[in-house]
């Protein structure tokens, strides 16, 4: 039996760092980010603007233009294959076939002068050799699958004839064209209305149960995470501050940032007289920082928080938080995560 293979996650992001700018003004946008995605699970990557969540996701597929960005360290392992060292000409094989991506803005991701069906067919054409008739049949299948009503008529429509929600469905259909094992969804519902958001999220859930597609869901909306994800990775200022099973994160948030964030959002199900507010603003990207990235806004900071970067403290059950106060103080930090 191959225990090693079973241990291996579908995707492992291992201490990934991305920087922007030249040596004069180097901005660290993603700072030693690590997380795993198992086959068939939905992982939420949560953070505010400037947290580096989108750059992290784009870096997985090496879609961030270099320059101005460059990889400053770390690995991205898909089935054990390091994508960061893969020759550039092999990347298109990975994109679409193994990992597909959908974006926030379904308006601008579609070519306005090409028919919907042709755009979906193009995605199929990239990785599968099918004749025209079976390609059209496959496109119809996909459009039906993502819930586009009357697909045989809509297949010849143009993007402007579709609403935002319908366009996002088309994007999902294109992403699914080659049965990817991982779907990276970058704020897929942010531009959509609540009732349409509910439809798209339900569609993503169905796809996961039906095809076992793993999903990396990037969002700023904690409600979306709670509803759709099994595990959560919380990012702040380019770093992972906490990660773990969704219930652990929401029931027992162990990083002060996660805690403050959860307390600061108004709730649909309970009355709060006054919202907890996190003072200050999200720091703009800067050079590599010492200490904890959140210490300037943290209500519980210690002296060492300004100077020593907290390691990922293991809290059991896959729950971990990068805070000196997280978990029992005696607990030894995970050796590999200690900053050099």
């Amino acid at each position: 039996m191959t225990a090693a293979v079973e241990d291996r996650p579908l995707l492992r992001v291992d201490r990934l760092s991305v920087e922007f700018g030249g040596p004069a003004a180097r901005l660290r946008v993603v700072d030693e980010v690590s997380f795993d995605i198992e086959a068939g699970e939905t992982v939420g990557l949560v953070g505010e603007s400037g947290s580096g969540k989108s750059i992290t996701a784009l870096s997985i597929l090496r879609l961030v233009p270099e320059p101005p960005s460059h990889l400053a360290g770390g690995r991205v392992l898909l089935d054990g294959v390091d994508l960061t060292t893969l020759p550039r000409d092999q990347l298109p094989d990975i994109r679409g076939r193994d990992i597909a991506m959908i974006f926030q803005e379904p308006m601008s991701s579609l070519n306005p002068v090409q028919r919907i069906g042709d755009q979906v067919a193009e995605a199929i054409l990239l990785h599968q050799k099918l004749d025209a008739a079976s390609r059209r049949a496959r496109v119809l299948d996909l459009l039906r699958l993502v819930g586009i009503p009357d697909p045989s008529r809509r297949i010849d429509a143009y993007p402007h004839q579709f609403s935002g929600g319908m366009r996002q469905r088309v994007m999902i259909a294109m992403a699914l064209a080659c049965n990817p094992r991982l779907l990276i969804a970058d704020e897929p519902t942010t531009a959509l209305d609540v009732t349409i958001q509910a439809q798209v999220l339900a569609l993503l859930r169905d796809l996961k149960t039906e095809f076992g597609t793993a999903i990396l869901l990037i969002t700023h909306d904690l409600g979306v995470v709670a509803e759709s994800c099994q595990r959560v990775v919380v990012m702040y200022a380019g770093r992972v501050v906490e990660s773990g099973p969704v219930r652990a994160i929401f029931r027992n948030p162990s990083h002060p940032y996660t805690r403050a964030l959860l307390q600061s959002i108004p709730r649909l199900d309970e009355e709060r007289r006054r919202l907890h507010q996190i003072p200050g603003n999200v720091p703009p990207p800067g050079p590599l920082r010492a200490g904890c990235a959140f210490h300037t806004r943290c209500a519980e900071r210690l002296l060492r928080c300004a100077t020593d970067r907290p390691p990922m403290m293991q809290l059991g059950g896959g729950h971990q938080a990068a805070c000196w106060l997280a978990g029992p103080m005696a607990q030894a930090p995970m050796a590999q995560a200690v900053t050099p």
Partner: peptide, 23 residues
């Protein structure tokens, strides 16, 4: 609308009324 709004609580059972179609 109320049932579609995501709630930041994983333990709330999803009893969503999902509307079909667009506005």
């Amino acid at each position: 609308l109320l049932s579609a709004a995501p709630n930041p609580d994983p333990d709330i059972p999803k009893r969503q009324i999902i509307l079909t179609g667009d506005v």
